[in-house]
Amino acid sequence: MPTTETISTALVEGPEELTLNTTAMRAVQRERRRARRSTPTSNSVGGLILKWTILCLVAVVMLTPLYILVISAFKPQADIIENPLGFSPGSFTFDYLWASITSEKFNVIQAYGITLLFVLLVNVFSIGLAAPAAYVIARGQSKWHLALLLVFVSGLFIPGQVTLIPVVFVLRMLGLIGTIPGFVLFETAGTLPVTIFLFVAYLRTVPRDIDEAAALDGAGKIRAFWLCIFPIMKPAVATVIVLHSIGVWNDFVNPQVILGPSSGIYTVTTGVYAAIGQFSTDYTTVFPTLLLTIAPAIIFFLVMQRYIIGGLAAGATKG
């Protein structure tokens, strides 16, 4: 029976390695592919036409907003309103996109930099804190280790917005409200449950022989972990990086509340909110700004698609 666990264990090893670890399994997989290709839905012509009609209709619904966004970023306001779906070469212009890039209201280049910095810091801290802790938890056998795991995992069920208000109180007491360290600390803490959960699950599949081999080398436990165990955790680390990068890049509420407009530190999302919230009917500002903010996410998605989809599926089915 495929349980959630078996699926996700397979998924952690990468989307392409689903259940095909040995040659025998690979043969089964090939057989399975052949079997699926010959299911009745796909071998009757009528079924094929119906299937692709449905898929194309849904694809149109999915892509129309994106298409309008892209063409409208290069058109003047009158053209956007009078001819929303069409595109005339005569009115094509880079002016509005350039105006958005150089806008004084929203410095998009700086926002990219700041958001990337946050993505990097949260990933480094989250993995740096979680990996050794997860290792101790995964290898430990006392009730304390189990209790520690339960405490961390309980965080999976607590919505971030619920802790946000009290966190403002805590950060105010620590003097970290409106600062980058304060934001990164909170954001990192929010990622720890998922990270530790996925790392512990992964480390339990890593044989203990490796620990012993590392110990024989005479390396201390901490050194042995970083030098011998951590490199093995690559697939789990990749999953976690995918999850956190998307999460931090897209996060709006946490930077908005913790950094606040008064700090002058804008991420991509809080910057867009500040820039567009005020004049949302001036589409020559709205569309180029949105294009600039969506473009990095779309490019990242196109390049990393396989890892993103695999990572998200793994993260979700594990949790």
């Binding site: 802790a133 290792y135 101790v136 405490v151 619920v162 802790t163 208000i165 909170f186 990192t188 530790i196």
Partner: peptide, 28 residues
């Protein structure tokens, strides 16, 4: 000691930024 050193940083950050706020939420 090594086990403590490896777990404490995560425990401290999680406690300060997640567990304490959750409890504090009830108080506030």
């Amino acid at each position: 000691l090594p086990g403590l050193i490896m777990t404490m940083p995560a425990v401290i950050v999680f406690t300060a930024m997640f567990l304490v706020p959750t409890v504090l939420g009830f108080v506030l």
